[in-house]
């Protein structure tokens, strides 16, 4: 993946992570599975992108990280969506919908 492309996708990845965390807190591994599921096995996130993205979101205060215990009784770092993160997700979703519908309309135009 070239650099420019990853930058282009960065914002999108952040949004998708927030979306994945909307239902319940998750650890990194869980997130990678969930993201794949959400994309119907089409989108494979790289760990070199996932973890920095989580760090970025934490820095902005949209998610909070805390140590917890997994279903299999394993110590894992869970990421929780904060109220600020919820608001951000809403804003980004609206914006994305507007953008994609506009672009779709433009692409369909004859």
């Amino acid at each position: 993946m070239t650099n420019e492309k990853s930058e282009l996708l960065q914002g999108t990845l952040d949004m998708l992570i927030l979306k994945a965390l909307q239902l319940k807190p998750m650890h990194g591994f869980g997130l990678s599975i969930r993201l794949r599921q959400m994309s119907r096995e089409l989108f494979q996130v790289e760990m070199g992108s996932l973890y920095p993205a989580l760090c970025r979101l934490e820095a902005r205060g949209w998610v909070k990280a805390e140590w917890g215990v997994s279903d299999h009784n394993r110590k894992a770092r869970y990421y929780v969506l904060t109220p600020a993160g919820r608001k951000q997700l809403q804003a980004e979703t609206t914006q994305w919908e507007l953008l994609s519908s506009t672009i779709n309309a433009m692409l369909k135009a004859t």
Binding site: H27, G28, F29, G30, I33, M47, Y51, S70, H72, R74, K75, A76, R77
Partner: peptide, 17 residues
């Protein structure tokens, strides 16, 4: 330390899966 721990947990969970 947190970072290493997190990576290790991730790998182990993947292995278990």
């Amino acid at each position: 330390a947190d970072l290493s721990e997190e990576m290790r947990a991730h790998l182990e969970m993947q292995t278990e899966a």
